[in-house]
Design a protein around this nucleic acid. Structure first.
Lengths: 238, 238
DNA sequence: CGAATATTTGATAGCCATCAATTATTGTGG
DNA sequence: CCACAATAATTGATGGCTATCAAATATTCG
């Protein structure tokens, strides 16, 4: 009889199974992976990876959220990625020995599962489809960055704010009777450094959207979107 | 005796050999690839790929330059990539059936070599290292886009202009006795849509750099950089 | 050389960054 | 559970940068 091993820090689920790149694998194969997993936790504000350091493992977020960000010489932060359950990073360094080109910082308590580079390489050798899955993920990341650049280069601030809110709604929104409740993963300042503007501008822009009735701001950490279609419409037609 | 087959449109060189992803292969293996190649040419302004269409092949630039760009609803262009000899695209669609998310347009006469998706997949199956090479290329593209986003989000226009000029110098510059002559791959307008500003702003910014003595503008299509170190210095310390 | 195209230059307006001060929210300890 | 301190967000005022528009000039290429 087949036994699925469990990862205690992962709410008794097989964390590897939740990762897209391992999703196509059999339970037996997943067990093989689970044995290789190293677990670790980080508190809010803690750096999981620091720009410039060598990273020798694939890191899978099991719970919590984290940001991937760069800092310019004068201290300005640019958030490039948002990570949550099932997301992973470090895949770039599986092949190369490049140093991390940005930092990963926990936005709240984060539990991760890690697999060492050497183990992952062996895994890819044994299961070539993992390599293809990773390639697919890289491709998706590329496409998101391409869209971000287009937005930063050609769209108004309002549209970029809406874009960020829609992304949050897709990732972290919960459908309610008559709308979507969204737990914002970032503060106003965070949203600002995600879309490349200032905190104050995000604030003003979100308030304008609220006054227009497109969103409802609830405290600092939530918004309620009654008609997400209207918001999407504004995003794609402006 | 081993014969290396020649690709007539490729100035009698083996174009596949010039592509990073095939660079590690033996002559025999390259011959295998060369047989699969389809050749085609495009004139300036012609679309090699149009956003939204299905792309079923890997396209390798053999000579000439091309831009990869998106267009917003109101017609604004955002240039994402610059392609020249040895660059390739279409790799994203090797695995997926996604439609092209941006267009590729010839900036001058372009000769390309193409390999059909099915052939490439077979090749990857036979030579797994090609897959790894593609992954490496994807990784490099990611890193460039990440840097672009950071620049767009946190740097001044002048720095972004310098960044573009330095990139052109690295790719298209020729070392002279006392400096670097750079053939600009893009017009002022092109540079503008590469860094997300207007033509006029690029013009003013480049003229300011000229007046400062950091570059010398030679007509519309060339610049001369006497002290590229000074330019790099300005880029990285501001 | 001359027409077509591209770039430069100037003037103006608007958007957004910045600075400063106020107000709101959050989370903690009593 | 409330109050309060710390943190975060808002709001207002101002200035600077860059988009926009318009016109003049320069460059390129046939």
């Amino acid at each position: 009889m087949q036994v699925t091993r469990q990862c205690e820090h992962c709410q008794h689920k097989l964390c590897a199974k939740r990762v897209p790149i391992f999703s196509a694998m059999s339970t037996e194969e997943i067990n093989e992976i689970t044995d290789l997993i190293i677990r670790k936790s980080y508190v809010k504000g803690e750096a999981i990876v620091t720009e410039g350091e060598t990273i020798d493992r694939l890191v899978i977020i099991n719970s919590g959220k984290a940001k991937g960000c760069k800092y310019s010489i004068d201290g300005k932060e640019q958030i490039l990625y948002l990570y949550s359950d099932g997301d992973f990073f470090g895949e770039r360094n599986l092949l190369t020995n490049l140093k991390a080109s940005y930092s990963i910082v926990a936005l709240e308590t984060v539990h991760v599962c890690m697999i060492l580079k050497a183990d992952i390489r062996q895994l890819i050798k044994n299961h070539p489809e993992i390599g293809l899955k990773i390639m697919e993920e890289l491709t998706m990341k590329l496409e998101r960055l391409e869209n971000t650049i287009e937005q930063m280069g050609t769209r108004t601030v309002e549209i970029r704010v809406i874009g960020a809110l829609l992304e949050f709604a897709d990732k972290f929104g919960r459908e309610k009777e008559a709308g979507t409740m969204v737990a914002l993963p970032l503060s106003r300042e965070g949203i600002a450094s995600y879309i490349g503007v200032t905190r104050e501008t995000v604030s003003r822009s979100m308030n304008a959207l609220d006054e227009e009735g497109l969103i409802q701001i609830i405290g600092n950490k939530k918004i309620y979107i009654e008609n997400i279609g209207a918001l999407r419409n504004r995003f794609s037609k402006t």
